[in-house]
Computed example of a mutant assay.
Amino acid sequence: MKDVRTPTSSSYHDYLISSLKDPEHATAYLETFLELEAEGREPELLRSALKDIIDVKLLLNNLSQEAKQRYEQLDKLLSESGGTEIYTLIEFLDALGYRIALVSKD
C-alpha cells in the first residue's frame, strides 16, 4: 500500500494562496461562491474567499488603497447581513434569465 499523505490545513492554505496568484484561477474561485445554491450558501465562505483573494493581492504587493477600503466596507456588510444583498441580486437576475459572470481585467 502506498504511503498517502493528507495535506495539513497549513499546506492546503499555502497551495490555495499560490494557485490564486493566477487571475483566471482566482476568478473561477470567486465565481464558485457566487453560484452556490441557496441551501449551500454560508456567508462565512464568501467572506473567506474574498479574504483569500485579498491575501494574495497583499502578498503580490498588488492591492490599491481604494481596493483595501472597499474590501473593508464589503467585509463589514457581509459580516452584518450574511451577504443577503448579493445573493438576492443573483437570485433576481437568475429569475430574469441572467447570471453573474466574473471576468478578470488582467
Rank of each mutant, 00 (worst) to 15 (best):
P23K: 05
L60C: 06
I90K: 07
L16Q: 06
D14Q: 13
A49Q: 09
L36H: 07
E39F: 04
E42L: 13
S79R: 13
A49K: 09
K57Q: 07
P23Q: 14
P23T: 04
D55K: 03
Y12R: 05
T88V: 03
S9C: 00
K57S: 10
R70L: 05
G82L: 12
L34D: 11
T32S: 15
L20S: 02
S81D: 15
D75W: 00
L36R: 15
N61Q: 12
V56R: 01
R70C: 05
K21H: 02
L50S: 04
P43W: 12
E80W: 00
E42N: 15
Q69K: 11
L63K: 05
L45Q: 12
N61G: 09
L45T: 03
T27R: 15
Q69D: 04
S81K: 10
L45K: 15
A38P: 03
L20Y: 01
A38Y: 11
L59C: 00
E31N: 10
L34I: 14
L59R: 12
A49S: 13
Q69V: 03
N62F: 01
D14S: 10
L77S: 00
I53A: 07
D55H: 14
A28F: 11
Q65G: 00
E44V: 10
A38T: 13
F33H: 06
A26K: 12
K21E: 14
E91L: 03
R70A: 08
V56H: 08
S19V: 12
H25G: 04
K76A: 02
H13V: 02
E24Y: 04
L16Y: 00
Q69N: 05
E72K: 11
Q65E: 14
A38G: 08
T27C: 13
S10T: 13
S10D: 01
L30C: 06
L45D: 15
A49W: 02
F92A: 08
I90C: 01
L78K: 06
L34A: 05
F33D: 02
A49T: 07
L63M: 08
E39P: 03
K76C: 02
S9Q: 13
E44I: 15
T84H: 05
E66N: 09
A26V: 00
L34Q: 08
L93A: 04
S18A: 07
E44K: 15
G83M: 07
I53Q: 08
L59V: 02
Y15T: 05
P43K: 07
R70Q: 10
S18F: 09
Q69E: 10
Q69G: 02
L46Y: 02
S10R: 10
L45C: 07
G40Y: 06
D55S: 10
I90D: 03
E91W: 05
L77I: 01
